[in-house]
Design a protein around this nucleic acid. Structure first.
Lengths: 354, 354
DNA sequence: CTGAAAGCGCTAACAA
DNA sequence: TTGTTAGCGCTTTCAG
């Protein structure tokens, strides 16, 4: 162990001002309001800033201006035994979107004993961040209510109930699953099953709705089966029963990639060839899906797009005080791979943008 | 759209002081040096702080004290087509570890044009953070050199070369793969293959070393085959050739879970029963491994432990100026599942702690 | 054990 | 177009 030599004091606005022979304010203006400077001065000052490596102290700047240039993202509770493989991709997208706007993302995790909203209050009271990005938002979400009541800027990934603030972004799940059913219908499937997990989470409901409306629209014979819990064994069991039963479906729309994995195992156990004897689709486009044999047809969430819209909306609130009063639904992408068999190409669909 | 009503000004130290009938300094002391207060005063002031919901303004505090209570984590570049499913779990661990020490994690992503180190310099110059957590660190890592040269506190996940700063934490991959081989040997396997990807990344090298030393130690017949690129197709192709060839191994140690997935497909194509005809092991314990059929025996990284040690080391540097001069190797956990067949229980192994 | 004074580095408001 | 003044909210230093 060796003792750390404290780093040299940084260069301050004062240093630059002295070197340039102007006042501190002029340096500040060069950075924050360049149009106020004479072109020649601006050039000279800018060069000097670059040369001395001056960067305004973020704390001083924040203290004075009130802007933190930091957005908080409370990370959803992640069961270590069952982690969310999309988290990395979503964070990547959010960090990039925020970064392009000159903002950083601060991760928050309430201690287990603490209420969700308590951790947010700490950040608000300490004025550590300018606003919040929320994900996995429920229709009646305590965080949304809490932040809205206090007038703290936020943007939500996940639709809220009509009586709640409507500053949300979500994916058009109903449309996506609808398209999936359309794809299978176009390939000639008539009997089709929806494999759901017995969960009443809203996003599960949307996938279910998409299935049923798709089946109706395309005049198919659809049925829904539900798996209690999410034990791999239970999924396989339920699906095998389905595949052995009378009137076996020729396609299974699984409500998630995890469930689709169970369908793979069940189909193999029943001696069915996925893609030929049985079409299978999933939902999420988790990293593993492209590497399955056969690769899984699934629904990809537009993570980067979601992040862009979330950040744009949030910053509009932070900077201009504008609070969006309506949600936005973003289209998903159907990733067609071998598990759904031979398929007619899907018609491109156009959507209104945010 | 509705215009946002700016939130009420927060409660300041002045407010609390006035309410308590003491000076601002006493409030500050109650928070930062409670031992200096008379028990009675402390109690009264603390109650008032709680009651008024006072939290020191982070910017003001930082400006004055120099401490930001924020740690930067540059997120590794994540190929959207091939995202790292462990990222979420690692971040979760890091955020929790930092949170327990009263620190937040700030995510950084350099813009594509920017050099790696440039983004770090911005944060340093703006004094936005107290230090850095680095992951995916290479033996001769530009970021490590850069930060060390400037005397900025950091801690690295990934061992560095002997001529580099040694403030790192890594997993004992050699030992882990060694144990894996021991497990297979104990189950009676004699012919065993190592499936590697043709990468010269150091962590791949460690897995290879672990395999070869394990084979030697247990007197097995081991061979290594290498996959060019990481196309799923190529993996399956190479493995099928292996399984069809003379002297077929009875066990395959794959250098990653992705590769193990390819072995599953190859074994199926060759009509082999995984777990019975062929033992397979992976590396990483990605979320999907428990849900494969059969579930995959693999190596789990002690994410929470890694994060704890990283944060502890970093904060020792930040707070006390102590820079660790030696790396730490953390033991992995072998997760035995069905893919490795019937196995003798592994002897528990003890390690020195950090 | 408590209080008073000073100032961290910056930018808003205003004056020149 | 530039400079001057003031103060954001806090903690360090030193005096009582």
């Amino acid at each position: 162990m060796e003792t750390y030599r404290p780093r040299a004091r940084g260069v301050t606005i004062e240093d630059v001002a002295r070197a340039a022979g102007v006042s501190r304010q002029t340096i500040s203006n060069a950075l924050n309001a360049p149009h106020r400077l004479k072109a020649e001065t601006l050039e000279r000052v800018t060069a000097l800033i670059e040369q001395l490596g001056y960067r305004p102290d973020q704390s001083a700047r924040s203290l004075r201006s009130g802007a933190r240039r930091i957005i908080a993202y409370p990370t959803p509770e992640d069961d270590p035994a069952n982690p969310n493989p999309l988290m990395g991709g979503f964070l990547e997208a959010v960090v990039s979107a925020a970064g392009e706007a000159g903002y950083h993302i601060l991760l928050v995790r309430p201690n287990p004993e603490q209420e969700q909203t308590r951790a947010l209050d700490e950040l608000i009271a300490a004025r550590t961040v300018d606003g919040f990005l929320l994900s996995d938002v429920l229709p009646d979400d305590a965080r949304v209510r809490h932040l809205a009541r206090q007038g703290i800027p936020f943007a939500a990934f996940g639709r809220t109930a009509p009586d709640q603030p409507q500053n949300w972004v979500d994916v058009d799940t109903v449309q996506a699953v609808n398209d999936l059913v359309g794809l299978l219908a176009a390939a000639g499937h008539q009997r089709i099953a929806f494999l759901a997990s017995a969960s009443d989470l809203p996003w599960m409901g949307h996938r279910r709705d998409g299935f049923h409306s798709g089946v109706r629209r395309h005049g198919l014979r659809g049925r829904e089966i539900s798996v209690p819990g999410d034990e791999p064994g239970a999924i396989v069991e339920v699906t095998r029963r389905l595949l052995r039963g009378p009137d076996r479906p020729t396609a299974v729309v699984a409500a998630s990639d995890w469930l689709a994995l169970g369908v793979y195992a069940a189909a193999r156990a029943e001696g069915l060839d996925i893609g030929a004897d049985l079409a299978v689709t999933g939902f999420h486009d988790m990293p593993v899906t492209a590497r399955l044999e056969p690769a899984l047809t699934t629904v990809r969430l537009p993570l980067r797009r979601i992040a862009d819209v979330l950040v744009r909306r949030l910053l509009r609130t932070v900077k201009d005080g504008v609070v969006p009063q309506a949600g936005v639904l973003l289209p998903c992408e159907i990733v067609v791979r071998a598990s759904s068999g031979e398929c007619a190409p899907l018609v491109e669909r156009s959507y209104d943008s945010i």
